[in-house]
Design a protein around this nucleic acid. Structure first.
Lengths: 226, 226
DNA sequence: CACGATATGGCACTGAGTGACAGGATACTG
DNA sequence: CAGTATCCTGTCACTCAGTGCCATATCGTG
């Protein structure tokens, strides 16, 4: 009778309420299943791991991210980061659920672990995409590092937002962090350091946080040259 | 009869061999326990999660890292990264075991997940340490980002080393990556971008991958100034 | 040796997760 | 519409992870 999406929602919020009421460990898969009007067996067909009832949204988001990555173009790090925007949007929209889930995950190791592993999925998507973009010998390593940084930023943005939903604008904060990551680790940042320019047409120069004139900086550079 | 350390070793390599021989899923906790000459019940006292038999070394390493973090001083990012050196040393020493374990983890989701979660433990140690060091409003966020980057680098170093143990020197590669991370995300890298220098005595300037003279760079900067 | 502390084993139990089978709904085809 | 293939669900039964409880070593210490 119920549409699959609607059933999924009933399972998700039903599980949430049961976890909150009885505690996570005391809530069996059977409890959740019967609360949603299905059998235990069918429950495990939907969620091979019991904890994943709470995280069914990520399965959808991951598809969105993957799709967006495959069709986007532009500066790789920004593209990677921005591919997470629909996820952020979705989480913000679902704020009350996300907050309650986070509260549960704070106290229950299995839930927290599961969440970490879901975040890892995003990270691997981004890393794979970045590895495809960046050319060069060690790009796989950098792809992984950058993806980790972007995802840490993303996670922290959500944490911050959950701590003070009113005052924080997660989109703005994430955009800002992404800027900083892109600037420090992008084209001109992390990249081969061997002798001889790999991109002679575009040497890497980053100047941050400076009120100095170009001449003063030139002087600084001259002094710092190894 | 057996010393605790020796028993631990018997369990670890015994489990490894059983996993390799019979497959991970087909190997029960009882198999491992009896192979090491203890009861199933005692086994679960040693390792609350079955998969952790293979990762018992990390419990030790984590203590080393924590200790090293608490007693070290210096540039925070480098200190954080270098706190992982004993781990790297240990893994390299135990090369054959680590390689076989990695091969197993490549094919078995539960093992891979468990490994990810162990890495996460290191990451949280580093993040906590960095958050203690960095002062400033958003330092918690940066601490998390930097810790994630450092740990991604660390993981990748190990991956690379396992792929070609002969040609790669993991210590050197890690040192190099750590340099790059520290340079791009350290003092002069990621940090407040608002108007006005936060560290007027030390403006952030990074020049990488350039064969240009200071004057040429000054010119570049002048052109790029927003 | 005696005795308290700690580690181990045995037993029983709950619950996660899975394979096999059967019935029912649904979709496709003539 | 009837017939049939397909998919989805529920039931049953089973293995095994993980845990509490209690009895029994085993060990350090006086």
């Amino acid at each position: 009778m119920p549409s699959p999406a609607e059933l999924n929602a009933r399972l998700r919020v039903g599980a949430l309420e049961l976890f909150e009421a009885k505690g996570f460990d005391a809530t069996t898969a059977e409890d959740i299943a019967t609360a949603a009007g299905i059998s235990r067996r069918t429950f495990f067909r939907y969620f091979p791991v019991r904890e994943d009832v709470l995280f069914s949204d990520h399965a959808v988001y991951l598809l969105l991210v993957e799709e967006r990555l495959s069709s986007a173009s532009g500066e790789p790090i920004r593209v990677a980061g921005e591919s997470l925007l629909p996820v952020l949007e979705g989480l913000v929209t679902d704020a009350s659920f996300v907050a309650r889930r986070a509260a549960l995950a704070r106290d229950n190791v299995p839930l927290r672990d599961r969440e970490v592993l879901w975040m890892r999925e995003y990270q691997e998507l981004l890393a794979a995409h970045l590895a495809r973009q960046d050319l060069g010998g060690r790009s796989a390593i950098f792809a992984q590092i950058v993806a980790a940084a972007v995802l840490a930023a993303f996670s922290q943005v959500i944490v911050r937002w959950l701590e003070s939903p009113a005052t924080e604008d997660p989109r703005a904060l994430f955009a800002e962090l992404l800027d900083e990551i892109a600037e420090s680790m992008g084209e001109s940042g992390i990249r081969g350091r061997g002798p001889g320019p790999e991109h002679p047409e575009r040497p890497g120069v980053v100047v941050i946080n400076s009120g100095l004139s170009a001449e003063q900086i030139a002087h600084l550079i001259e002094g710092a040259r190894p």
